[in-house]
């Protein structure tokens, strides 16, 4: 083992965790004590050489703990080959409660090139018998193979392809991982839930429009940016999988990157969904126009949705192919 890596002793980290809990219990004294909560291990990989990203990850994890109490492990890449580890706790008092709930965390700073060593370190630090979720926060996973050694540790791997340069390659990468039997998720797909819900409601409310669209119908997905992002690609595939007779096209329009609108045409029917502002959709079906509110797309909301699905996600799997 690299001598620098050996400086992090998993047994010492586990001992520090035990001491931390003892300290928390002492601090609370007779005030009801603390409740130790853990339903999974959540390993967050911050982006390379990006201290603010690690900080952001910790903040998001702090919020996520309320719904998904976990042993959180934040991996922060170091610039100078530094290796270190420390423990922390996230505590909160449930509304109207009398006992603090606490989740534990471990922060490991390690050389980004030494992920295989880090993976070995992580094995004893994973909470036994509980699911392990690996959260690759940025495009690093798609740029090189440096995160590959971490993948076998996890039951589910959450990526974020929002900022990738080559969306098609990223989707292909996820498809291959799925084919290899891994449970994968992509926050770019999670961001589509509101759009997809709006489409599903259109189907519920106006099935006759779909009847026309389902055979020889056309769907145009309008997106900004130079090329369609993963969201537009996913959305197109989702429509194709749901209605195999429909022809789906991606069309570039002026404006910011991302999906702008979806237009469905079939027979005499036309339906459309357009993004209005940042948080709502305008849905048109025949004469009827209404608004649908998109779900908040903050990182914690997206992660909350993904952490609620620890098993297979058949719809996303179909989309990946």
């Amino acid at each position: 083992m690299n001598p620098a890596v050996a400086a992090i002793n998993p047994e010492k980290i586990l001992r520090d965790l035990r001491d931390l809990w003892a300290q928390l219990a002492r601090d609370q004294g007779s005030a009801g004590g603390v409740l130790r909560a853990c339903s999974m291990t959540l390993i967050a990989v911050a982006e390379q050489h990006d201290a603010p990203d690690a900080e952001h990850a910790r903040k998001t994890i702090g919020i996520l703990m309320h719904g998904h109490p976990s042993r959180a492990i934040v991996l922060t890449p170091s610039e100078g080959g530094e290796f270190s580890g420390r423990v922390f706790a996230e505590c909160w008092m449930p509304f109207g409660g009398q006992q603090q709930i606490c989740s534990e965390g471990i922060e490991i700073t390690a050389d980004a090139e030494q992920t295989d060593e880090v993976a070995r370190l992580l094995v004893p630090l994973i909470a036994p018998d509980l699911p392990v979720v690996l959260w690759c926060r940025g495009p690093r996973a798609f740029l090189d193979r440096s995160l590959d050694p971490l993948f076998p540790l996890a039951n589910k791997i959450i990526f974020n392809t929002r900022a990738v340069r080559h969306p098609n390659s990223a989707v292909e990468f996820l498809r291959r991982m799925r084919k290899d039997g891994r449970l994968v998720a992509d926050l770019a797909w999670t961001r589509l839930t509101g759009w997809r819900e709006a489409v599903a409601h259109l189907m519920d409310a106006a099935p006759e429009g779909w009847l026309a669209a389902s055979s020889n119908g056309r769907v145009r997905i309008e997106h900004g940016g130079i090329r369609p992002g993963t969201r537009s690609l996913y959305f197109a595939r989702w429509i194709e999988r749901a209605l195999p007779g429909v022809s789906v096209t991606l069309a570039r329009v002026a404006g910011q990157a991302g999906m702008h609108s979806v237009i469905f045409e079939g027979g005499n029917a036309e339906m459309s969904i357009r993004l209005v502002g940042k948080t709502s959709l305008e849905v048109r079906t025949g004469e009827r126009v209404y608004s649908a509110l998109l779900r908040p797309d903050s990182e914690e909301c997206l992660m909350h949705e993904e952490l609620s699905i620890l098993g297979r996600d058949p719809v996303f799997e179909r989309v990946l192919g």
Partner: peptide
């Protein structure tokens, strides 16, 4: 047209009142 909504995703979509 399929019998049930092909866009349904009960894992993620909220029940609609």
């Amino acid at each position: 047209m399929p019998d049930s909504n092909p866009f349904a995703d009960p894992l993620r979509f909220e029940r609609q009142v």
